[in-house]
Every structure is written in structure tokens, then in C-alpha cells.
Design a binder for these strands. Structure first.
Ligand SMILES: [Zn+2]
Ligand SMILES: [Zn+2]
Ligand SMILES: [Zn+2]
Ligand SMILES: [Zn+2]
Lengths: 142, 142
DNA sequence: TTAGAGATGTAATGTTATTACATCAATTGC
DNA sequence: GCAATTGATGTAATAACATTACATCTCTAA
């Protein structure tokens, strides 16, 4: 099954974590989230990790592998390139500014299809694809 | 400066780590490498991390972000898509089998250029790009 | 010969993630 | 109503990954 099109009802902990990520300006580590939620009763890492697992499964949150951190989903496109991954669309990519920590989430058909073609040609069956560009955003590169 | 075309002379520790990675069938974590090299005098994680840093800088080793692990470079292509990254070629991508842990390293012009175009259009200056496809290799998917 | 740069050794610490086990709450079937 | 199941939660302990700090050591260039 793919992730549901409509966001599922969140549990209390999931809602707290999702809210924290939405308020944040950039990605946060699980332990940073934990610290932000201590006032709301969070005491242990597992409370955060469990919520993040579900939110990721729902496609509402993405994990940035090169940062060991998490961001709320920011994609604004229609469903496309439907596949086994993500929010019912194809692979998501991220551009991460190493100066201001801003993250841009985007989806690129051509990249997605090209990687899909490569996989097909090799008989490789993708389950999850990570694309992360580290560098400097326009503002910070100036 | 880009990485040198010719591999530089390696220090003793760098050579030991590189050799361990080349002998390995798949990616290894820094601590796994440490354990393999205890007989050769390695005692602390930092000895491994320092060597890995240099080898990565030389383009002889790649870090797999989604695994927190390292592989010896396996690319066999000519220099192309020259850029600020890697061994004098463009971005490298990896397909990682979650069943047998085999890793395929490849370079795809179209993907590279497409991501480069996206960056250009946004004024983003890439320093390092990570592309990792997790899934099942042909053999394991059968 | 001495000052600087780079490599090394070691210990301690910091950061990220998981395992194990107990408990609680909502749902289902009887 | 009342077990049985399922999923969410709480807590502690531990595992896995990575860095900081500091002391040597070696080579080389002035
Ligand atoms: Zn998204
Ligand atoms: Zn920036
Ligand atoms: Zn390579
Ligand atoms: Zn396989």
C-alpha cells in the first residue's frame, strides 16, 4: 500500500513532533526535537523516533540522510511519477545550504525517470531514493 | 583544487584502511574497519576516521550517507562532467541492495546535468551531491 | 637548528539510534 | 459485560557512530 492521500489522524506525540518541525526554520535532529518537547512531557528519544517513523511513513516528514536530521514535507506539487515512495509522488530531492541551513525540497521528473531507467536496465528494484545537494543557497553564495 | 588525478602516496594508516575496504565485499562502518585493523595496531576510532577523511578527499573512498558506511571507489569511467566533486568526474550515484549489501557505483550524465541545471536556475552552488538508491539488486529481487 | 606542518596515539566525550520490557487505551468478537 | 488483540506510550539501558582535546613524533624548509 502507498501512503494515504489524505493525512491520517495523528496521535498526540505525532502531532507534537510534526508541529515542532513545522515551526522550525530548518531541519532538526531527533534530540533537538526532544529538547523542544520536554515541556510537553517528552522524556526519552524513543518518543521522538517513534513519531518520526510514522510521520515519515505518512510522507509528512523527510529524513535528511546527510545531516541525520528531519524536515517537515514542503513539496507543493501535484501527485506525479507515482511510485512506491514518498507522498504518492516520485522521488524528492533536497538542496541544503551549509551556511544558513535552509532546505529546499523539490521534485524533478527527468532525474526521477533517468534513475528509474538506470534501475530498470540493471534489474534493480528501488525502494527508496535519496538525493541531497549540499552547498550554498543563492543568498549565502553572494 | 580538485583531487589529484594520480593517487597520492598513502600513509601507513591510510593504506591499511584503503586495503581493508578493497578486500571487503561491501560497505563497512568505521568501527567495523577498526575491528579489522586491531591486529595491525589500530586502537581508536580516530585512526580510522582520519584515514577515511583523507581517502574521501582523494576520491578513493566514498561515504554512503544512508548507511553511515564507507566503500572503496569502484567507478571505471573516464573523467567527465568535471566539477568540484569526486575523482575529477561528476557526481557519483549508488545502488545499494538491502538484501545482499552489494553496492553498485555509477555515474549518470543526464542526472548530473539535470541537477546542475536545477541548481543553476535557483542560484544554488553545489559542493557535494549524494544520490543513493536503496532497494533489491537483480539477483535478490528474483 | 629550529620553526612549521602533517601524521599519529590515546583518552574522553558527544551525538544519534535501538533494544527490552512494562503499561495503557481503543477495538473486536463473544 | 469481558477476554483477546492491536497499537500507542513510558522508561531505562545500551549500542552505534563521530568528534574534541591534548601529547608526541617526524619530516622538511628556512
Ligand atoms: Zn515532501
Ligand atoms: Zn544559505
Ligand atoms: Zn568513485
Ligand atoms: Zn542483492
Amino acid at each position: 500500500m502507498n501512503a494515504p492521500i489524505v493525512s491520517p489522524a495523528l496521535t498526540k506525540n505525532q502531532a507534537l513532533v510534526f508541529d515542532a518541525l513545522n515551526r522550525a526554520e530548518g531541519p532538526m535532529s531527533a534530540y533537538t526535537i526532544l529538547d523542544k518537547l520536554r515541556d510537553h512531557g517528552f522524556r526519552a528519544p524513543l518518543q521522538v523516533y517513534r513519531a518520526l517513523d510514522k510521520l515519515t511513513e505518512f510522507g509528512m516528514v523527510h529524513r535528511l540522510e546527510s545531516l541525520n536530521a528531519f524536515v517537515a514535507c514542503a513539496h507543493r506539487e501535484h501527485e506525479c511519477c507515482g511510485g512506491a515512495q514518498g507522498h504518492g509522488h516520485g522521488t524528492v530531492a533536497f538542496a541544503i545550504c551549509e551556511s544558513c541551513n535552509q532546505v529546499m525540497e523539490f521534485h524533478d521528473h527527468k532525474v526521477d525517470h533517468q534513475l528509474g531507467d538506470w534501475a530498470k536496465s540493471k534489474g534493480f528494484k528501488p525502494s527508496k531514493t535519496t538525493i541531497e545537494i549540499r552547498g550554498l543557497c543563492e543568498k549565502c553564495a553572494a
